[in-house]
């Protein structure tokens, strides 16, 4: 049986990570780990080795840009694609794809993102 792709969800809102995890587990068939402290994201990524990270941008203890920068500087983590979820921009402004941060070109989605749209972006980035 093929291994499940691993997704790390980082968002300070527990209700968001909990509902998205439910959906991604059940519909996407992914193995999902959640983290609500931005400051722990890089440590958890080293431990979990996700195939993709869904990352909130504005968090109280760290921001998504800084986390992406730290991931980009780590040779073992820098190739992990990141999908940013952000509440401060609109999807039309970013067209679903964004600028490079920390050496990688990442995807940006505006909250509230439809779960189907998130899954299709995850699948596209993972090539599944």
């Amino acid at each position: 049986m093929e291994d499940k792709k691993k997704i790390l969800l980082v968002d300070d809102e527990e209700s968001i990570t909990r509902t998205l995890k439910l959906f991604l587990d059940r519909r996407g068939g992914f193995e999902v780990r959640t983290e609500n402290r931005g400051s722990q994201a890089v440590r958890v990524a080293r431990d979990f080795r996700p195939d993709l990270i869904v990352l909130d941008v504005v968090m109280p203890d760290s921001d998504g840009g800084a986390i992406a920068q730290d991931l980009g500087e780590d040779p073992e983590l820098q190739s992990i694609p990141i999908i940013f979820l952000t509440a401060i921009i609109k999807e039309q402004e970013i067209g679903g794809h964004g600028k490079a941060i920390g050496g990688g070109v990442h995807t940006y989605l505006a909250k509230p993102v439809e779960p189907d749209v998130l899954i299709s972006h995850i699948q596209e980035r993972l090539g599944v």
Partner: peptide, 25 residues
């Protein structure tokens, strides 16, 4: 608007995902 957007869009994300989950599963 920027402040409201941030504060409102997060709970909307939970609601949207939750409703979609219930509709589907």
């Amino acid at each position: 608007a920027a402040g409201v957007a941030h504060e409102v869009k997060n709970p909307l994300t939970t609601l949207l995902t939750g409703v979609q989950y219930l509709r589907e599963f």
